[in-house]
Simulated assay, not measured.
Amino acid sequence: MAHGWSTGVLPALTHHLLGARPASPGYATWEVRPQPGDVTWAQGQLPTPHGALRVAWENSGRRFHVVLDIPRGTRGMLVLPGDGRRLTVRARGRTLWDGRHAASEGVAVVDGRVTISGLGPGTHDFTARRDS
């Protein structure tokens, strides 16, 4: 692990599989865009000047569950995997996206994927179910 080449996979795992990446210097703003492929779960944290940005997700194929723990002083967005027209997204017992309409501010489909923007400090828990 003392060699630079031996740690080359870490950015790929963090930025692509886990999906977390900065959108501005110092992670003042960030984006979480998981790319699970055939992987069933991932979790990790990124150190930022504001504290750790934690991401954990589980993927069963039909259900994608993600939990974000966001440090104070930062804001960001979550971009869920899958075709937005075939997903139902819920958080805190509420439907945020029903496959056609957003029921909450900050929820939209961008480039075919459900995007939840304006996420601030605290713990956020989202579940996306793929409709048949």
Rank of each mutant, 00 (worst) to 15 (best):
A108G: 03
L17C: 07
L68S: 01
T29D: 03
P47S: 13
G122E: 04
P34S: 13
G37Y: 10
G4P: 02
P22H: 01
L119H: 01
R62V: 11
V79L: 14
L13S: 06
V66F: 10
F126L: 09
A23M: 08
R72D: 12
A52G: 01
T88L: 09
V66D: 06
R33V: 05
T74A: 05
T7F: 08
T48W: 01
R33Q: 10
A20Q: 02
G4E: 07
H15W: 08
P25Q: 03
S117I: 03
R21W: 08
G84N: 09
G84D: 08
L80M: 10
A91C: 05
E31N: 02
H15Q: 15
L17S: 04
A12V: 15
A56Q: 11
N59D: 15
L10K: 09
R90Q: 15
L18T: 05
R21N: 03
T88E: 12
D125C: 02
V67G: 00
G76F: 07
H15R: 14
P22I: 06
W5T: 06
R75D: 03
G4F: 08
R113V: 07
R63L: 14
M77H: 09
N59F: 09
V55K: 01
G4D: 07
P34I: 11
M77S: 14
D38M: 10
W41S: 15
P71V: 04
A20R: 02
M77E: 14
T115I: 04
R72K: 11
G93S: 05
N59K: 11
D38S: 12
T115N: 06
T123I: 12
G99M: 04
L18D: 03
L17F: 06
D131L: 12
A52K: 04
G93A: 09
L80T: 08
L78T: 02
L80Y: 06
L18S: 08
V114K: 03
R92Y: 04
G106P: 08
H3P: 00
V110R: 15
R72H: 07
A108N: 04
A108P: 00
L53F: 01
H16L: 14
L46W: 02
R100A: 14
A23K: 10
F64N: 07
G19I: 07
D38Y: 07
P49I: 01
L87A: 13
A20K: 00
R63D: 14
H101M: 04
A103Q: 11
A108I: 01
V9A: 15
G61E: 11
T29I: 03
E31F: 06
I70G: 03
V32M: 00
R86H: 15
Y27C: 00
R94A: 14
P121N: 01
W97L: 09
P121K: 01
P71T: 05
D98L: 07
P47H: 08
T14F: 06
P71K: 03
G51W: 01
T74V: 02
Q45N: 08
L46P: 00
R85M: 10
T88H: 07
P36S: 13
G8W: 05
A56S: 12
G73N: 10
R130D: 02
W97P: 05
V66C: 11
P34M: 14
L80Q: 08
S104I: 00
G122Y: 05
S6G: 05
R129V: 13
T14N: 10
